[in-house]
Deep mutational scan, measured.
Amino acid sequence: TLFEALYDYEARTEDDLSFHKGEKFQILNSSEGDWWEVRSLTTGETGYIPSPYLAPV
């Protein structure tokens, strides 16, 4: 399942991933609570992002 960003987000740590509203992601790991490890389909980068900022496509 692909997810889309509902809002912009600016990374706060080196493990976070900055992204823009509308960017699409592949979920790599969603078992860590509200922070999911994802791969951006736009940039190819991986990192953690807050799951409340995402919605299924």
Rank of each mutant, 00 (worst) to 15 (best):
E10Y: 09
Y53K: 03
E14T: 10
K21D: 02
L54F: 06
E4N: 03
S31N: 11
Q26M: 14
K24Y: 13
T42W: 12
K21P: 02
E23A: 05
P50R: 12
G22H: 06
R12S: 13
R39N: 04
H20V: 14
E45Y: 10
Y9C: 05
T46H: 10
Y9K: 03
S40V: 07
E4Y: 14
I27Q: 03
W36D: 01
T13D: 12
L17Q: 03
R39S: 06
D34E: 13
E45C: 11
K24R: 14
L2F: 11
D15H: 15
D34C: 14
K21A: 11
R39W: 07
Y9I: 02
Y48N: 06
N29E: 07
W36H: 01
D34F: 15
F3K: 00
T43L: 01
P50V: 03
W36A: 01
H20D: 06
F3S: 02
R12A: 12
P52L: 15
L17A: 02
E23S: 03
R39M: 14
D16Q: 15
V38W: 00
F19Y: 06
S31A: 13
E4V: 14
E14H: 12
E23I: 02
K24W: 12
W36G: 00
V57Q: 06
E4L: 08
P56A: 10
Y48P: 01
G33Q: 12
L41V: 10
W36V: 07
Y9A: 02
T42I: 10
S18R: 04
E32D: 14
L28G: 01
D15N: 14
D16A: 15
K21H: 05
D34M: 12
F3Y: 15
N29G: 10
T43H: 03
S18Y: 04
R12T: 13
G33T: 12
S18Q: 04
Y9V: 05
G22L: 02
E10M: 12
S18K: 05
T13A: 12
S40R: 13
G44I: 01
F19Q: 00
K21I: 08
T1Y: 11
L41Y: 06
Y7P: 00
R39K: 14
R39L: 14
Q26R: 07
P56C: 06
E23Y: 05
Y53F: 12
E45S: 11
V38P: 00
P56M: 09
E23D: 15
Y9L: 04
Y7L: 11
Y48C: 08
N29M: 07
D15A: 13
E14R: 08
A5M: 03
L41Q: 08
S31F: 09
P56S: 08
P50G: 06
K24A: 05
L54V: 11
Y48I: 10
L28A: 01
E10Q: 13
L6G: 03
T46C: 07
N29I: 06
T46R: 10
E10S: 11
K21S: 06
F25Y: 01
S30K: 13
W35S: 07
G22W: 04
Y53S: 08
R12I: 13
R39G: 02
E45F: 11
L54G: 03
S51R: 12
S40Y: 04
T1I: 14
F25Q: 00
P52R: 15
T42H: 10
N29S: 11
G33V: 11
G44Q: 06
I27T: 04
F19H: 02
G33P: 14
P56L: 09
D8K: 03
S40P: 02
Q26N: 06
Y48F: 13
E10F: 10
V57A: 09
S31E: 12
K24I: 15
L6M: 10
L54Q: 03
P52G: 15
L17W: 07
L54H: 03
I49W: 00
G47Q: 03
F3C: 05
T42D: 11
T13Y: 15
R12G: 10
I27V: 14
D8A: 06
L54T: 04
D16C: 12
D16N: 11
G44K: 04
S51W: 15
E32L: 14
S30Y: 12
V57I: 12
K24N: 05
L28T: 04
D8P: 05
D34V: 10
E14L: 09
G44A: 05
A11R: 08
S31I: 11
T46P: 01
D34N: 09
P56Q: 09
T1V: 13
T1D: 12
T43A: 01
A5K: 00
H20Q: 13
D8L: 02
P52A: 15
T46I: 14
F3H: 06
S31C: 12
Y7K: 09
L6F: 04
K21M: 08
Y7S: 09
N29P: 02
G47F: 06
A11C: 06
Y53N: 05
E10G: 06
F19K: 00
F25D: 00
E23V: 02
E4P: 00
I49Y: 00
P52V: 15
G22E: 01
D15L: 14
T43K: 02
K24F: 11
L6R: 06
D34I: 12
G22A: 04
Y53Q: 04
S40Q: 08
S31V: 10
T13M: 11
K21C: 06
A11K: 09
T46G: 02
G33C: 08
E37G: 03
F25I: 01
L17T: 04
P52M: 15
A5H: 00
E23C: 05
L2T: 09
L41F: 07
P52C: 14
A5N: 01
S18W: 04
E32I: 12
Y53I: 07
G47I: 03
T13Q: 11
Y7T: 09
F3N: 00
V57K: 02
A5Y: 01
S18V: 04
T46F: 06
G47D: 00
I27C: 03
E37A: 07
E32F: 12
W36L: 06
F25G: 00
V38N: 00
L6H: 04
L41S: 04
G44S: 05
E10C: 11
T1S: 11
P56W: 06
P50T: 05
E23H: 07
N29V: 07
L41W: 07
L17Y: 06
T13R: 15
H20G: 08
I27Y: 08
K24G: 02
V57R: 00
P52D: 15
L17K: 05
G47M: 07
K21N: 03
T42Q: 11
R39H: 07
E14D: 13
L6T: 06
E23R: 00
T1H: 11
S31Q: 11
P56V: 09
R39C: 07
E14Y: 09
E14F: 09
H20C: 08
K21E: 05
D15F: 15
A11T: 05
T1C: 13
E4T: 08
Y53A: 15
S30V: 13
K24M: 13
D15C: 14
F25E: 00
F19R: 00
E32R: 15
T1L: 13
S51C: 07
D15Y: 15
E4Q: 09
V38L: 01
G22V: 00
D34G: 11
V57E: 07
T43Q: 02
L41M: 12
G44V: 01
S40F: 04
Q26S: 08
T46E: 09
G44E: 04
S31R: 08
T1G: 14
D15E: 12
Y48H: 09
F3P: 00
T1Q: 14
K21Q: 09
I27R: 06
L17I: 13
W36M: 05
L28V: 08
T1R: 10
E23N: 06
P50K: 12
S31W: 09
W35V: 11
A11N: 05
G33R: 11
F19P: 00
E32H: 13
L6E: 03
P52Q: 15
D15W: 15
F3M: 09
G33A: 14
L28W: 02
I49E: 00
E32M: 15
T42G: 07
T1W: 13
Q26P: 00
Q26Y: 14
E37Y: 15
Y7W: 12
E14Q: 11
W35M: 12
Y7G: 07
S40G: 03
G44T: 02
V38D: 00
Y53P: 02
E14K: 10
E32G: 15
